[in-house]
Design a protein around this nucleic acid. Structure first.
Lengths: 223, 223
DNA sequence: GCCCTTCGTATTGTATACAAATATGGTTCG
DNA sequence: CGAACCATATTTGTATACAATACGAAGGGC
């Protein structure tokens, strides 16, 4: 979408993720419009998008609130993602072409380079990781599937800023990608699906652990 | 959403389904606004919704066209639906409460009544069938899942107006629902999932057959 | 004292006017 | 004859004004 609409979307999302707009807080279109420096029209567009991505909830009378994400919600999202992305991997194993396979290899090599240095390059890892998964979706060749996953993948971002990435986790992820490449090379749909399902599931636990660690300080404060 | 927006949505969708707006035809916001008797603002909302449901495609420069649905697209949608709705059935089997189970029984009884008469009551069947599946989604208790399925389920409607319903198909569907009720009563997640997956898959073939029959006359004309 | 009604205010929905962007047609130059 | 370019017209994006609706507070009835 166009400039103002995108700006509103990104800015509101950023405010939600940064905690500037805390969970459960009410959102006024006019107020958001002012704080984004655009009119209500693009803000409304942005709210619709954010609602579709479940960052925002609307009451029956169309009032918007920042959604609050329980760990169960996150698990739900990861479960669906595992199912859909597993399916995508299976489809990709059948349909991937040599160029796409090469792309995947390149991305995973870049991932390896981002990890294997004295100080891991997390943004680089995230970027190539995203590209890796996107390429698989392209190979799967289902726009519907891509569209649904696009909405799911954005979400666990919530704690990402605060998430500290264990090198061991990154390495394991990297190796799982490599295994996926083997499955693709052999056109083994079952294998590809199994690896991907496990890959996503493990990502959930990594996230859940980080989430727990992030909550602990609060629990300590409460005592 | 509100009156004008809904009206635009329903009317545009109806025009697409009826073939009034054929596949591939260009959609002008202004033109649609006029034909719906509302302004462009609610039309834009409606277009966004229809785009999310893949009734409409947009070019890179934001021009809207009526999507054309190949049978492969439909199969893709049904495949995803089978996967997601199978998952929903499994969750529902674990979490369904007695009241919801009773609702399902009532709906399926109503389905049976709609079928078992001299002339089957197809609208009645469709209505209670929809309610049956919706109740299962409620029992599954995942808004995310419900939201995704809502977008998938609307779609195969395309040929529904022209679709002639074989009593045998309706009966089989009815019986499958009954079997699903048994699986729910026993809280057998695996069974529930298997039945639902098969149920949706069969629905696809019913659809595909109808689709083929609908195309045949054209093929005959071409000769 | 509590609940219900009513009115004021705040917020969202819709319409319209204007700005920006994009396609289209014709014209000119190679 | 074809291709590229510019001008124009069409279409979408954005802003603003107005209408409808929902929430909340105050007042009156029970």
């Amino acid at each position: 979408m166009s400039k103002a609409s995108d700006r509103a979307y990104l800015q509101i999302r950023a405010m939600i993720l940064s905690g500037d707009l805390p969970s459960g807080s009410r959102l006024s279109e006019e107020q958001l419009a002012e704080s984004c420096g655009v009119s209500r029209t693009p803000v409304r567009d942005a709210l619709r998008r954010l609602e579709a991505e479940m960052f925002i909830r609307r009451t029956d009378s169309q009032r918007s609130f920042v959604a609050d994400w329980s760990i169960d919600d996150v698990e739900d999202a990861f479960t669906l993602r595992g199912m859909l992305e597993g399916h995508a991997a299976a489809r990709a194993a059948k349909r991937i072409d040599p160029a796409q396979l090469q792309q995947l290899k390149d991305h995973n090599r870049a991932i390896g380079e981002a990890i294997n240095r004295t100080e891991p390059d997390v943004p680089g890892f995230l970027e190539h990781n995203r590209a890796f998964h996107t390429t698989i979706l392209e190979a799967a060749g289902s726009e519907r599937l891509s569209g649904m996953l696009a909405r799911l993948v954005e979400q666990p971002v919530i704690l990402r800023t605060a998430m500290h990435y264990d090198r061991e986790d990154l390495m394991r992820s990297w190796r799982e990608h490599d295994e996926l490449l083997l499955a693709f090379a052999r056109r083994d749909t079952e294998w590809a699906q199994a690896i991907m399902a496990g890959h996503i599931r493990r990502a959930f636990h990594t996230y859940a652990d980080a989430h727990r660690r992030a909550r602990e300080p609060e629990a300590a404060k409460a005592l």
